[in-house]
């Protein structure tokens, strides 16, 4: 703002300078010329080209060895469309998104509201709640798979204490996916909590004080003042939650590896299992294309709606 105003003040005599002239004079053009090519090159080399290539493979029946030769057109997509395990993985992804938005984000928000003020004990709590996020996802999956193990884990102890049959929640069609959801919420809520803490610390103290004088109780200050001011942070948080859910993979493999009977796959673990491990790279590419389109569609729609006026 300030920069733009200064420019206007300097140049009224020569009328409106052209956009190019302005870009040259304030050094923006130079910045663009210096900084854009490397980024553009890397992006093209490592993102755009592989993407186009993958799109090409999606039309072949190809094991990944040698050159793809067997052109099958849209067949990979047709198989995908009829595969019930894929439908299940889509549904599961939707559930991960729902759990992220309706459990994880409210949980993260509550925690953030409790511990956003800068005190010694709050720092400790923040560290504890953030720790799961730092943990490698594969390690997280392994740890929880031990905990829920019916022979040796906490689940075993619980069933022994209650005197019941040994219980294997991760191999139980009813319980396996809820356990996955639980681990997802546990692992990532700290990340959202940090976003909210940063945003809460950015709310001027004056506003909450003004609300106190206006007669707002702590709950009302949160509801009428803090939460509305956190809208942009919530929008960002939901964005990351959805994108993250669409790409969820590393947790699934050590926890359930998609089982029992393919009931806990996400889109990416489906891609990995049915594309890569079964040497059907062409088919996997087709799944990748579908995932890419879903992600782009979401990103575009979301940015132009929820994240727009904020």
């Amino acid at each position: 703002m300030a920069v733009a105003e200064t420019n206007n003040i300097i140049s009224p005599a020569q009328g409106r300078p052209s956009a190019l002239k302005r870009a040259l004079s304030d050094g923006r053009l130079v910045t663009v010329l210096v900084f854009l090519p490397p980024a553009l090159l890397l992006f093209t080399l490592f993102v755009t080209l592989p993407l186009i290539e993958a799109a090409g493979y999606a039309g072949y029946k190809w094991s990944g060895y040698g050159d793809p030769t067997e052109w099958v057109g849209m067949r990979n997509f047709e198989i995908l469309q009829k595969h019930s395990a894929f439908h299940q993985s889509l549904m599961n992804t939707v559930w991960v998104i729902v759990a992220s938005c309706l459990l994880q984000i409210p949980l993260a928000m509550s925690m953030a509201l409790l511990i956003y003020r800068k005190t010694w004990s709050n720092t400790v709590f923040r560290l504890i709640f953030f720790a799961p996020y730092i943990l490698a996802e594969v390690a997280t999956g392994l740890i929880w798979s031990f905990i829920f193990d019916g022979d040796y884990g906490v689940a075993a102890m619980a069933s022994q204490a209650l005197g019941g049959e040994p219980f294997f929640p991760l191999s139980d069609r009813t319980w396996a996916f809820p356990v996955v959801l639980f681990v997802v919420v546990w692992k990532f809520f700290g990340f959202h909590m940090m976003i909210f803490i940063a945003a809460l610390q950015g709310i001027p103290e004056d506003l909450t004080e003004a609300a106190r004088i206006d007669g707002a109780k702590p709950g009302q200050i949160t509801w009428f003042v803090k939460l509305p001011l956190l809208k942009p942070a919530i929008a960002v948080s939901v964005f990351f939650a959805v994108i993250g859910s669409l790409q969820l993979f590393d947790l699934i493999v050590p926890l359930t590896n998609g089982g029992p009977s393919n009931s806990t796959h996400t889109i990416v673990s489906y891609l990995y299992t049915f594309g890569l491990t079964r040497l059907k790279v062409g088919f996997g590419s087709a799944v990748g294309i579908v995932l890419f389109l879903i992600t782009v569609a979401f990103a575009v729609v979301y940015r132009n709606t929820a994240m727009k006026e904020t």
């Binding site: 001027p204 004056d206 506003l207 004080e209 003004a210 004088i213 009428f224 003042v225 001011l229």
Partner: peptide, 13 residues
């Protein structure tokens, strides 16, 4: 009492 702050402290939303 009522208070007027230096920053005005208006609720922006």
């Amino acid at each position: 009492i009522a208070m007027v702050f230096q920053s005005y402290a208006l609720y922006p939303h």
